[in-house]
Each structure stands twice: as C-alpha cells, then as structure tokens.
C-alpha cells in the first residue's frame, strides 16, 4: 500500500484486544484517510464501539498500535492524550448530553472548558453550531425534553463545537425514525464536506452507510473481512460480506448460535 503518511488520519496496525477472556480483535489493521467518510460495518456485538474507544485512547490495546496523525495513541502520556483529544470528537450512540444542563450549555461546554473566550463570542459560536443542526430554537430545552433524534443532533452540535479534525459516530442511525435518519445522513455528509472533517462512522445500517461512505470496512470474527468503496464492496467475493450487505438470515454467518446437534439434545430429555 503506497499511501503518503500525512494522508492518513488514523492508522490501526495489527490491533489485538480482548475484554476479559473474550478476544475481540485479533491482529486487525485499517486506515482512515483524511477528509473522507470511512465506515466500519459489522454485526452487533463485535466491538465496534470498543474500536472507537481504542482510537480515543479510553482503552489500551494488548498488542499493535494506533497512530493518530502519525502519533501513537497508546504510547501517549495522559497529558498528551488529553491534548490530542481536543482535536477529535465522538458522537455517542445515546447522544450522552449532560442531563443537568440546557442544550445551549451542553454545546457551550467544550468551548468553555478549553478556551477563555468571552461569553458573547461563545454565544455566537453556539448559535452557529445549533443552526447547523437546525436546533437553534431548542437551545433552552433540557436534554430530557428532546426526542431521540433531536438529542443526537444536539450532541452533534456539541461534537463540532470546537471544530475537530476527526469525528467518530457511534451508531448514528440506530433507533431513528426515517426522517431523523435522513437528517443525520445529510448532516454527516455536509459537515464532512463543509468543515473538511474526517469522519469515522460505525454502524450496521447498510443502505445509509453505503450512501455516504467513501470507504467501507466490514468487520466480523475479529478481522476485517472486506474493504473497499461501496461499489467495490457490492462486487465483493466473500459470502460473509454478501450475506451482511443483503441482510440474509442464514448463510456464512449461521442463523443458529453454536450448539450441540438438535436431535441429540431432544433425545437427552427422553
């Protein structure tokens, strides 16, 4: 692979990670290019959120390395890590808005924490971000008063408050009605283009991902089983990839959880 170093935002090399006894990633590698929307797809429960936490430095891999703009995240000191995180941002599945603050204060939170800007300027910035997600009118509501889709948009406004270089979306489409889903799809694409962001989208919603991603990784069974642009993936040879993309119930990933033969177990009862 001949890529220029500066072209890579995130470079995951031979990542091995296990949670307790369970091995989640076994020598997995992937690259996220600057300015692109990179999607990571895969069935539920393969640790996609874990991957984002690894990139964010909240978890440490057992082996392998994660390079962020050429610098190793696991090897950073705490202070360096905190400094680095200021340039990345993550949109959690639940939105993770601070329940004790209004929408306005939530969006203002990272600005207030990391800058010493005057309050009038902060107000302008917050209103701009809220305008971008269409929630300027909801700025005085508490997070508990928002619908799921609105909460996610408010969280998105907070995630872009400090104009990060990298933004990670954790299941942005899960549990959304079609309209909110459409809004989120549009926002991710537009933000990526308008702000020159690099985006990582973790999801298992195939059509939405295929519509916005520049490059897609399909992860299953601790490895990357398929990668490429959406077009390349549709032509992919792996039956596993095909089953996942088409949403078939049975195939390379068996419908049944690993079990003893059915007949044997029935006989045991007799």
């Amino acid at each position: 692979m001949e890529r220029i170093l500066s072209d890579l935002m995130v470079d995951i090399q031979n990542l091995t990670f296990s949670r307790g006894e369970r091995l989640i990633y076994d020598g997995m590698s992937m690259q996220v290019k600057r300015g692109q929307v990179t999607a990571i797809m895969g069935p539920s429960g393969i640790g996609k959120t874990t991957l984002l936490k690894l990139i964010g430095g909240q978890l440490k891999p057992e082996r392998g390395d994660i390079l962020y703009q050429g610098r190793s995240i696991p090897k950073m000191s705490r202070a360096e890590l905190y400094q680095t995180r200021k340039s990345m941002s993550m949109l959690f599945q639940s939105g993770a808005l601070f329940s004790e603050m209004t929408v306005f204060d939530n969006v203002a939170f990272p600005i207030r924490e990391h800058t010493k800007l005057p309050e009038t300027l902060i107000r302008t910035m917050v209103l701009m971000k809220l305008e971008a997600v269409g929630l300027r009118g909801a700025r005085d509501l508490m997070p508990s008063e928002l619908s799921g889709g609105m909460a996610r948009r408010a969280a998105l406004a907070r995630a872009i408050a400090l104009d990060p270089e990298l933004i990670m979306y954790d299941e942005p489409f899960a549990g959304q009605d079609p309209i909110s889903m459409g809004i989120v799809v549009k926002l991710i694409r537009e933000l990526n283009n308008a702000l020159g962001l690099t985006s990582i989208v973790v999801s298992h919603d195939v059509p939405e991902v295929m519509s916005i991603a520049d490059y897609v990784y399909v992860v299953a069974e601790k490895h990357v089983i398929g990668e490429g642009t959406p077009e390349q993936l549709r032509q992919h040879a792996s039956p596993l990839v095909q089953q996942f993309l088409k949403g078939e119930a049975d195939g390379a990933v068996p419908f049944h959880f690993k079990a003893a033969p059915y007949a044997d177990e029935l006989m045991e009862l007799l």
Binding site: K53, G56, Q58, Y82, Q83, R85, K86, M88, S89, M90, F92, Q93, S94, A96, L97, F98, S99, F109, P110, E113, H114, A155
Partner: peptide
C-alpha cells in the same frame, strides 16, 4: 452511575475534560 450508563462520563473524557 446514571452518568456512566448514559455515556456522559465517557463523552466528557473524549472532550478532554477530566
């Protein structure tokens, strides 16, 4: 506990706030 369950603590860490 609820802040943790709703990922508020995680998201604060990701915002580089201790």
């Amino acid at each position: 506990g609820l802040m943790k369950a709703t990922e508020q603590i995680s998201s604060m860490e990701m915002m580089a706030v201790d």
